[in-house]
């Protein structure tokens, strides 16, 4: 397997990961924002491919996604944007599973070409989109509605094309579930620092925020929330990141995903080197 570019971004300690909803408000603007974020110090770009039902997002990103969809963002336009980006950091595609699943010769395509409903072909699957994304220069995927339990075909497709599949470790994640995720983790894992969606404090959990159950377990290869909070600090002093943020881009300081860190794969020989504390 090829060396993960995403993992390399964490090699020297904490990395700044910034989010932009692709196509909000236009493809050209997204290209500018992403390049500005990288100039401003982002180590990894998370480029959102807008889906009509963003169940894991709060209002800020929901609105960004809506603007992008209204402006005509599509998976193909997204891949063109990725090809067009002039950045030297890994770009991670963040989207929902249905868009990945339908890409290419899907049943949705044949059904919508033939609304009278002749026997639709059984079809769909992540393979085509993952292949196209790899070709366009995507380094990995975050798919919020694809828990490890359903990730088999996606995992296989990513492995085949040398892409990282990144899982989200939630405050509710149990140690047992974390183990299963680490078995399939190649790049990094998200540590979601509080319950809820990505909205910055528009909806706060009625229980107090706290780091993941699973990640609190003090072993050297597990992430710790406090260390990853440090990881997000540079964003506060990055003017480029702030500018982008006010236009619908999200930096890691404004979202629960701010608490993210490396969570090296269990089999990694260098796991202990990449403790975020180093």
């Amino acid at each position: 397997m090829t060396r993960s570019e995403i993992r390399a971004a964490f090699e020297d300690g904490p990395a700044l990961v910034s989010y932009v909803a692709a196509g909000d408000p236009s493809v050209e603007a997204s290209k500018e924002y992403v390049e500005a974020l990288v100039d401003g110090g982002s180590d990894v770009i998370e480029l959102g491919l807008p889906f009509s039902e963003p169940v894991a997002e709060g209002t800020t990103i929901q609105n960004a996604i809506k603007r992008a969809l209204n402006a005509g963002m599509t998976p193909d336009a997204y891949l063109d944007l990725v090809r067009d980006l002039d950045v030297d950091v890994p770009v991670v595609c963040m989207t929902y599973y249905n868009l990945i699943y339908q890409y290419g010769e899907s049943e949705a395509r044949s059904a919508s070409e033939n609304a009278s409903g002749d026997e639709p072909r059984a079809s769909g699957g992540p393979e085509e989109f993952v292949a196209a994304a790899a070709e366009a220069g995507i380094s990995g995927f975050v798919v919020p509605d694809l828990p490890v339990d359903e990730s088999g075909p996606m995992y296989e497709a990513c492995r085949e094309h040398g892409l990282d599949l990144i899982f989200i470790v939630a405050p509710t994640t149990t140690p047992e579930r974390l183990e299963r995720m680490l078995d399939r983790t190649t790049g990094f894992v998200y540590v979601q620092g509080r319950l809820g969606t990505t909205a910055p404090a528009t909806r706060s959990a009625r229980t107090r925020p706290r780091p993941s159950n699973a990640c609190r377990t003090p072993t050297s290869r597990r992430p710790s929330a406090s260390a990853s909070r440090r990881a997000s600090r540079p964003a506060r002093s990055s003017p480029a990141a702030r500018t982008a943020s006010s236009s619908g881009a999200r930096t890691s300081t404004s979202s629960p995903r701010a608490w993210r860190t490396t969570c090296p794969r269990r089999t990694s020989p260098t796991a202990s080197n990449r403790s975020p504390r180093s």
């Binding site: 039902e53 249905n98 868009l99 339908q102 049943e107 949705a108 919508s112 509605d145």
Partner: peptide, 18 residues
């Protein structure tokens, strides 16, 4: 057509892009 929405794979009304 087949797709994934609200936690399940099922039949959906969707565009060809999903």
């Amino acid at each position: 057509s087949e797709g994934v929405l609200h936690g399940a794979r099922t039949k959906l009304l969707q565009t060809e892009e999903g």
